[in-house]
Design a protein around this nucleic acid. Structure first.
Length: 511
RNA sequence: GCCACGUUCGUCUAGCGGUCAGGACAUCGCCCUCUCAAGGCGAAGAUCGCGGGUUCAAAUCCCGCACGUGGUACCA
């Protein structure tokens, strides 16, 4: 473990087109883990070269998501760094310079043919069976135009794109850390556009130039980039630059295991599966749990251990241990893990985390909740009952409303083993007990109620049902006596009396 | 179509030539119990995609096939 590591420079380079997706967050997480593991740098770079898909709010979403998970960056658009700027649109002139350099060296050429022109199907092609998902590849018509014609076009000052002149024969080999060496025949490669007509670079050029300029040592990116990596390799070669170590991460599949995880919520078998980071936040997931969860898909901490801290993960994280196998996210495990992390919180901390969530759900301002005595008593009681922060409301809402708001169905008040008369008798006896106990605490209440139940010959379970429902309005609640204490003697009795009224009305009605 | 990658319990995974193929979640029992949880104990669950090799020995190495996935854009 004390082996000397070369600090890595790793970047997360999302394109700002919308919300941050869990797949993107996973890539960032692995980037970050490796940077931290080696004591290197984690760099945030914004790849906004597609002006059509650009979404101005997106960068903020991205950064918020990363911060939420605890992934801090050492260089980035907001904090700068030695290789600023970290937003590609702000680096526009750099790319043209490098593209022109490749034209000069014969590795690239100017393309005057607009897309629509060569994509147009010839009559024979129009008749042929269309192949699903395929486009007509560019035919390189601009690559071999005679010099005079080239000069003429140039003289006209027509707009052009710059395309890479891929070698027509031979092979190109890329070394992927997870898959080993992968070789492509060069005649299967296309002449990719490097600089678009609008002067913006495509990903291919921007990525190669920036990764070189920013001294990136390891590129972790989605598997969907694997097919274009020979182009990237060829570009690095053309510039005479070393290629960073490539690591193509397996894609994350949809919950049903079919297809790449979609960017919106999925409903499978009536269950909703979230996809966007802000949705997980809103749903009440803890960042620690999501961190632990995501770290364990595609990589694993230990054969026998699933729960671990950030620090432990950093210490063990190795790129070579990542599996190249695509996987669906095990959502059920995430829920379980979230429960584990909720139970590990101190009651105080839980109270704090619950505050904003409950504020929204119960319509009580945060300040009041933060200082709420009831909530601080309730927090430890619900800790082992909730898997998501958002589930707390259903366990505690009754404590924050007036007695009149509790209007349970009469049928709920009556335990299945009892009838109306018995229930009424139980409640009467309970009120009596409550009025007579000297100290209003859990211990005394429990003893007194148990004694009373025994006296009336009713088992404790059924005996307590009506109290639970009378106080909370529901059959499922935090422990009963603790709940009574939260409410206090007067409020508890008030609620029991209300319940008796409901029952009495019900009794008359059914007779 | 072409190119590439992948394939171990339902799911996430361990495994790197000799293991009763291990763990976790989910599922199902039982225990505990004031409801619901949590917790404890236990069960079930993978002939390691298929077919061939290599080897005394293969989930592990090699070849073929099947299936899945990704890519095939002046999107990333």
């Amino acid at each position: 473990m004390t082996e000397k590591l070369t600090p890595a420079r790793v970047r997360f380079a999302p394109s700002p087109t919308g919300f941050l997706h869990l797949g993107g967050l996973r890539t960032a997480l692995f980037d970050w883990l490796y940077a931290r593991h080696t004591g290197g740098q984690f760099i945030l770079r914004i790849e906004d070269t597609d002006q059509k898909r650009y979404n101005p709010d997106s960068v903020e979403f991205l950064m918020r998501g990363l911060r939420w998970l605890g992934l801090d960056w050492d260089e980035g658009p907001d904090i700068g760094g030695p290789y600023a700027p970290y937003v590609q649109s702000e680096r526009k002139p750099i790319y043209r310079q490098y593209a022109e350099q490749l034209v000069a060296s014969g590795h690239a050429y100017k393309c005057y043919t607009p897309v629509e022109e060569w994509e147009e199907a010839s009559p024979e092609e129009a008749e042929a069976e269309p192949v699903a998902g395929s486009r007509k590849p560019y035919d390189r018509r601009d690559r071999f135009v005679p010099a005079e014609q080239q000069a003429a076009l140039e003289a006209q000052g027509r707009p052009y794109a710059i395309r890479f002149a891929a070698p027509l024969d031979g092979t190109t080999t890329v070394d992927d850390l997870l898959r080993g060496e992968i070789t492509w025949k060069n005649n299967t490669l296309v002449d990719a556009v490097l600089l678009k007509t609008d002067g913006m670079p495509t990903y291919h050029l921007a990525m190669v130039v920036d990764d070189y300029l920013m001294k990136i040592t390891h590129v972790l990116r989605g598997e969907e980039w694997l097919p274009s990596s020979p182009i990237h390799k060829l570009l690095f070669d053309a510039f005479g630059w070393p290629m960073p170590q490539m690591v193509h991460l397996p894609v994350i599949l949809n919950p049903n295991g079919k297809g790449k995880m979609s960017k919106r919520k999925q409903v499978v078998d009536g269950k909703e599966y979230l996809a966007l980071v802000h949705e997980f936040i809103e749903a009440g997931y803890l960042p620690e749990a999501v961190f632990n969860f995501l770290t364990n898909v595609g990589w694993n901490f230990d054969a026998e251990r699933e729960v671990f801290t950030k620090e432990e993960a950093i210490a063990r994280f190795e790129l070579r241990d990542i599996t190249p196998k695509p996987a669906a996210l095990p959502y059920a495990k995430l829920e379980w893990l979230n429960g584990v992390y909720i139970r590990n919180l101190s009651p105080n901390e839980l109270h704090l985390r619950l505050t904003p969530v409950l504020s929204k759900q119960l319509g009580i301002d945060e300040e009041t909740l933060r200082h709420s005595e009831q909530l601080s008593e309730l927090a430890p009681l619900i800790q082992e009952r909730i898997k998501l922060l958002t589930e707390a409301a259903q366990f505690v809402d009754w404590a924050f409303v007036p007695a009149e708001a509790i209007q349970p169905e009469p049928k709920l008040l009556i335990d299945k083993k009892l009838n109306v008369e018995q229930t009424l008798a139980v409640l009467t006896a309970g009120i009596e007990v409550l009025m007579q106990t000297e100290t209003f605490n859990v211990k005394t209440l429990e003893v007194a109620f148990r004694t009373q139940a025994e006296k009336m010959g009713i088992k404790v379970g059924p005996f307590l049902t009506s109290f639970r429902v009378a106080i909370t309005g529901k059959t499922i609640s935090p422990p009963l006596f603790e709940s009574m204490v939260v409410l206090g003697r007067d409020e508890t009795i008030l609620r029991l009396r209300n319940a008796m009224k409901i029952l009495q009305a019900y009794a008359l009605q059914t007779v």
